[in-house]
């Protein structure tokens, strides 16, 4: 029950928006920095090494699809955040939002690392015989980001400023 004169504030929209945007930010960082700028790997570089024009083009297609999914996730996160901004019962907490962003990024690193690097083996962070330490470091970064994000979001659980008065 709420005390008289108080209103129950919902943190879930900020958490889910931050999670989705964090996943998008992590995906874009992976795609832009690792795939394109440093060119350490591509989407299928473990099964189709980019050593010919055809293989480079095939990898470029799958990299593009990866970026398309990243874009869609980011757009969805923006939509959720926009809707949350219009609600008076949502706690507009910076710590909660930034914590959720970090958790989203960490979640992406963890899930993408497990699925693509270890289960399906379509690529590794750094292609080559010594790829395991890099893949494990990628997973580790995901765990660290998840923990940091959780701690930060938890510290903002008592932030109680609704968007209307923020």
């Amino acid at each position: 029950m709420s005390a008289p004169g108080s209103v129950e504030l919902d943190r879930r929209p900020i958490l889910s928006a931050g999670l989705l945007l964090g996943v998008g930010m992590g995906g874009f960082l992976d795609g832009i920095v690792f795939h394109q700028i440093l060119q350490l790997h591509n989407m299928l570089s473990a099964v189709r090494p980019p050593t010919s024009v055809v293989n480079i083009e095939i990898n470029m297609f799958w990299d593009g699809l990866f970026h398309a999914f990243t874009w869609a996730t980011t757009a969805l996160g923006l939509a959720v955040l926009w809707r949350a901004g219009g609600r008076a019962d949502v706690a507009w907490s910076g710590r909660t939002f930034v914590g959720a962003l970090a958790m989203g990024w960490g979640l992406f690193n963890l899930v993408e690392g497990v699925v693509d690097h270890h289960l399906l083996g379509v690529h590794h962070v750094v292609e080559g015989p010594g790829h395991l330490p890099w893949d494990l470091a990628f997973l580790g970064s995901g765990v660290v980001l998840l923990i940091l994000g959780f701690v930060l979001a938890r510290s903002g659980r008592r932030d109680a400023t609704p968007r209307a008065s923020a």
Partner: peptide
């Protein structure tokens, strides 16, 4: 390959 590209986003 489609699973590799889409599944991480689906889980998240």
């Amino acid at each position: 390959n489609l699973l590799a590209a889409a599944l991480p986003f689906g889980v998240c």
